[in-house]
Simulated assay, not measured.
Amino acid sequence: MKEIKINFVDFWPDFDKTDNYFYNLLVQEYKVIIDDDPEFLFYSCYNSEYLKYKCTRIFYTAENIRPDFSACDFAFSFDYNKRKNHFRLPLYSLFIDNYKMLAHLQTIKTRAEAKRIWSAKSKFCCMVVSNGDSSERLNFFKNLSAIKRVDSGGGVLNNVGGKVADKLEFIKDYKFVISFENSRHDGYTTEKIVQPFFKDCIPVYWGNKLVHKDFNGKRFIDHHNFNTEEELINKLIEIDQNDELAINMLMEPTFSLDKVNHQEEQKQVLKILCKIINNNEKPIARQLWRYIHRHKFIYRNTKKRVLAKFKKTYNCIIPYMRADFKV
């Protein structure tokens, strides 16, 4: 097997360099070595260490931000676009892979099984949230709580005696799970809608208006399908009081019929990675774009210092930065 040197930087705190979506795909075709001087760098959006690397750079985002194609050779994100150096890979795909939950999500239950599962649900609705910035999510929690008890097991609006240790274990007893994204953008779908599916709950979803392209709209309650929040809450209460409606929802397939299945998606990603590895073109990091991007980045965060230090040396770049950032 061909040997390749890779590294991962700027990912979330508990990211494992030798047990993650990209590493586990690459080891199928290559002898993969984690090296501080890599040939291929995977980076995300939580820091700026990637700027130190002059190799081929591959960007991945789990957050609602756009890739900067002046900084990377290829980007994986949740966006729908037709760029040749981009592939749509939302966070929920990595979540499904990491938690080995695909087989369960693909199982279509018998009616008897669905009835048994729903009958075992002893609680109404819950939420587990650590980000308190989403007013849509917090308002919905408060408005629904005014009708019927809703438990909050996260750090926000906690009413169960403290943060729960295991979200998946916590939500399994609930019929409904508030599954609002932190923010809204077409294509931006995280693990929040998948977790309730895995525990046979019904997600109450807000976020990606195009979520039906990935998931079967008959398997969850979509905020966007209702004219008012009152209509949504009434629908949720109706399902709560009618077991047959709930059982029908549990028996629905999880994914949209138009969505590429998870295994095929993995094959597509691996094919892209192999193409990147076999590509002999000079990386972005060694081209003029690297200098433009790097100094745009520095300039955005330390404008006055950069102007004083680099104006003379990079006189050709400063006008570009001024126009871009309207200094």
Rank of each mutant, 00 (worst) to 15 (best):
K2V: 00
N7Y: 03
V9W: 08
D16L: 14
K17A: 04
T18K: 15
V27P: 07
E29W: 09
V32K: 14
D36H: 08
P38L: 09
P38Q: 12
L41E: 08
Y46M: 10
Y46L: 13
E49A: 12
K52W: 00
K54V: 11
C55S: 14
C55V: 04
T56R: 02
T61E: 04
R66W: 06
D68C: 03
S70R: 06
A71L: 07
C72K: 03
D79G: 05
K82F: 12
R83T: 09
N85W: 06
N85L: 07
R88I: 06
L89T: 00
Y92F: 15
L94F: 13
F95D: 10
Y99L: 12
M101V: 14
A103T: 08
A103G: 07
L105W: 07
L105Y: 05
Q106I: 14
Q106H: 10
Q106G: 06
R116T: 08
W118T: 06
K123I: 11
M127E: 06
V129L: 06
S134G: 01
R137Q: 01
R137N: 00
N143M: 10
L144G: 01
I147Y: 03
K148G: 00
D151P: 03
G155K: 15
V156W: 02
V164N: 10
D166T: 09
K167N: 12
E169I: 00
K175I: 03
F176P: 00
F180W: 02
E181K: 04
R184C: 10
D186Q: 14
T189M: 08
Q195T: 12
P196E: 08
F198K: 04
K199T: 13
H212P: 03
D214T: 06
G217C: 05
H223F: 11
F226T: 01
L232V: 04
N242M: 13
N242Y: 07
M251A: 04
T254G: 03
S256Y: 09
S256L: 09
N261T: 04
Q263H: 15
Q263E: 15
Q263F: 13
Q266L: 10
Q268F: 12
Q268C: 11
L270V: 03
K271A: 15
I276Y: 10
I277G: 03
E281H: 06
I284P: 06
Q287M: 11
L288A: 14
R290L: 01
R290C: 12
R290H: 13
F297L: 13
V306W: 14
V306E: 15
V306N: 12
K311W: 06
I318M: 15
P319G: 10
M321I: 15
M321R: 02
D324Y: 09
K326N: 14
V327P: 12
V327M: 04
